[in-house]
């Protein structure tokens, strides 16, 4: 815990007394921890004397800032025109069913998160799904089950 607070103290002091310091502190925090944890926000409030409510106003205003830990595997379903026409919505619906979470929310075990993206630039392979940078082509409601099961086995 002390190491943790020391780290936050160090990040906060990098930007203290500089104009617009809050956003810079939040950027560095997210860089360091992957998201803005409540205890980190409380610590920043304590150190900088910026009200916690103001910190949350900023964090929730920008989509960039995350309040929950990112999932280990981010599943991006392409909904560009080609993928859309080839059934991307059915695939996304199936993934939601398999994971049991809505888009943008990580699974309780922190393993997966579903999001949609616009054209990944490989329309000939439509519909495509990207998992942490690896592209899966011609995905359908059947093979997506196997793909996710494969990742779950790997953990």
């Amino acid at each position: 815990m002390n190491e943790y607070t020391d780290k936050i103290q160090e990040i906060a002091s990098r930007w203290q007394n500089k104009r617009g310091s809050l956003i810079m502190i939040l950027h560095d925090l997210q860089e360091e921890f992957g998201y803005i944890e409540r205890k980190a926000a409380l610590e920043v409030a304590r150190i900088t004397r910026i009200p916690l409510a103001k910190i949350y106003e900023v964090v929730t205003f920008y989509h960039y800032f995350k309040l929950s830990p990112p999932a280990k595997y981010v599943i991006s379903v392409c909904k560009g025109t080609a993928c859309y026409l080839k059934g991307a919505c059915r695939v996304a619906g199936e993934i939601k069913k398999i994971l049991g979470v809505e888009e943008g929310a990580p699974t309780p075990d922190g393993l997966f998160m579903l999001r949609t993206v616009r054209c990944l630039g490989c329309c000939g392979l439509a519909p495509v799904v990207d998992i942490n940078g690896r592209i899966f082509s011609r995905v359908d409601v059947k093979n997506i089950r196997d793909i996710i099961a494969e990742y779950r086995r790997k953990r």
Partner: peptide, 25 residues
């Protein structure tokens, strides 16, 4: 709450249509 009283219990969270007033987080 914020400026007159200096309490900062309430804040606007989110943006656009989804803006809501609530305590931090």
């Amino acid at each position: 709450c914020q400026e007159v009283q200096g309490v900062w219990a309430l804040s606007f969270l989110g943006r656009g249509f989804n803006t809501r007033f609530a305590p931090a987080g």
